[in-house]
Structures are given as structure tokens and as C-alpha cells.
Design a protein around this nucleic acid. Structure first.
Ligand code: FES
Ligand code: FES
Lengths: 142, 142
DNA sequence: CAGAAATAGGATATAATTGTCCGATTTAAC
DNA sequence: GTTAAATCGGACAATTATATCCTATTTCTG
């Protein structure tokens, strides 16, 4: 469904959010350890998310990553930044564009699923996901 | 969502079905032309689908591909054969297994979308998709 | 100011996916 | 039987995704 980069990006963002809600800035190393991802690859993804204003990066000693508006940040913004919005907007059979006027054979049925995914991604905030981590009701790794 | 291989596989299967319903065996070259896919790559995918009893291949002159039970064949069987069933069964954040007892933060919401996709794939037959092609209401390429 | 800790970013390496090529084999048609 | 048309299958090539390494830069701390 999502690329590895996107999976890491979402998990990282949730972990950063969990800590930012406590005014706790976190480092790349800590993030990678907590979400069980390759450190340098995660660095690239976080740079990408920083360029897209999803996370804020602070350089230098005691630097790290923060997220300032986790209540407003939706999963869709992360997916779009990393994977493009094709997964929740594109044609399921890879036609260049999902076009109502020239639909592919699965269009009608696929559209429902895709809209469902789109709604979910657009209505799920980082904050609510981070709160479930606090609960201990969910996990970011094994 | 699906891999290129899977997209080609689905389109090929629909096109073969459309022709098999008319007792019309189709060749690799014709299939690739009709779904706008690379010929040799499509060959590999059809071999795979033949090994998985989705399509029947006939070798030799006047050979080609057929599908014998398009009413019973569901999209899920094609997706599973080519991409594995991870896309409609696996964890959205890439945890090794989607485990109700140790769910990831998006589990509750993602599960709904994924089940929706699963139902769709399991309840959509090649035959019904091929009939929409006959209609002219849908297309397999541009 | 010097040193340490941290991100940024370019270059490179590896793996997976996508795509191509070609000879072997099968089968129909003449 | 010979030939032509077709799939099969192995090897290869190109591209993209994933992952690593190293140096530069920034900034806190002492
Ligand atoms: S055209 Fe394929 S999903 Fe809309
Ligand atoms: S554990 Fe991630 S979707 Fe179920």
C-alpha cells in the first residue's frame, strides 16, 4: 500500500508528535531506534518531511525534530509528501489519470475503496495517533 | 496500490476473459497491444498467472491464452498470485503482522479501509469486469 | 574559543522491480 | 516432414527504491 519510506515517515512523525506534546525534542538516532528503521534512510525521509513543513528540524547540539501542529497535521500530508497522492487519487489499474469519462473496468468499485482511504488519511491527525501510543494501546515496532 | 506487474496482470486477465466469453483465444502480442504493456514483461506475468491456474496457456501455432471460469475468478486471486495478499491483509505501517493484540497506531482506521478493499477484491469477478468492456463503458488503455 | 553533538546533503552501494533479448520447445497447417 | 507461429524460460539490462557512508555545517556547552 505505502512505500517503506512512507511507513517510516508516518511512524517517525507519530513518535515525534508524542514527544512534542510533552515539549520533548527528539533526535534522529532516538527516532530510528523507537520505530526500528535504518538511521541514515530515516534521516533522508525526515529531511523530506522538514522541506514539506511537516516536521521542524533543529540543527546543532541538542538539536532534533519537533512537530508544532500535530492536531492539524493529517496522514494525507505525509503520504502526499513522500509517496505522492496517487495512492488515494490515482487509477487502480495505472491509467495515467482516473477519468470519470474514460474509466477503467474497476473504476466504480475501486473508487469507493480509494475514497474511503482518502477520507481516512485526510481525517486522521498525528495528534490522535500519538495519544494512542501514550495509552499503550498501540505500538510502533514489534 | 498495486505493482505494475499486478496492474498488467489484471488488465490482461480482463481482456482474455472478454475474448474467452466469445470462445476467442488471444495471443500475447494481441494482449500486450490491447492493454498497452511491454510484451516480454507481460509474458512473464501471464506465465505466473498460468502457474497459478488463473489463465490457461496453449503453446504452439494458434496458441494463446484463455480463461475458463471467469465468473468464479476474483480479483483477489490475481492480486494474491502477483503481489501477495499483503495489500489487503498486512499492516498499513509494515509491522511484520497485523496483530489485534499489538496493533499499530493506524490499525483501527486502516483495518476498515483494508477490509473494504478485501471485500471488493474478493467479490469482483473477471466476468463482470469483462462485460463492462463489452458495453464500451470502460477502457483498458488511454 | 574549542570541542562535542547534532542535522544536511552529496556520493555511493545494494536490492527489488520493471523491462528486454534470445534460444528452446510445442503445435498447427501445409 | 517442414515450416511457421506461438509460449516457455533463462539470462541480462535498466530503473527505481532502499540503505549506507562520509564530510560539511550548525549550535550548544564548557
Ligand atoms: S479510471 Fe481506474 S480507478 Fe478510475
Ligand atoms: S497492526 Fe498495523 S494495520 Fe493492523
Amino acid at each position: 500500500m505505502f512505500s517503506k519510506a512512507c511507513e517510516y515517515g508516518i511512524k517517525a512523525a507519530i513518535y515525534i508528535t508524542q514527544n512534542s506534546l510533552l515539549n520533548n525534542r527528539v533526535s534522529l538516532k532516538e527516532i530510528a531506534a523507537e520505530i526500528d528503521s535504518p538511521v541514515a534512510f530515516t534521516a533522508k525521509i525526515l529531511q523530506d518531511l522538514a522541506r514539506n513543513q511537516v516536521v521542524t528540524s533543529i540543527k546543532g547540539a541538542r538539536g532534533g525534530f519537533e512537530i508544532h501542529n500535530p492536531g492539524e497535521l493529517k496522514l494525507s500530508q505525509i503520504v502526499k509528501a513522500i509517496d505522492s497522492d496517487d495512492v488515494y487519487k490515482g487509477c487502480g489499474l495505472g491509467l495515467v489519470k482516473c477519468d470519470e469519462l474514460n474509466p477503467c473496468p474497476i473504476h466504480d468499485k475501486f473508487k469507493v475503496v480509494r475514497e474511503n482511504l482518502k477520507e481516512m488519511l485526510e481525517n486522521t491527525s498525528l495528534k490522535e495517533l500519538a495519544l494512542k501510543l501514550d495509552d499503550g494501546t498501540t505500538v510502533l515496532k514489534i
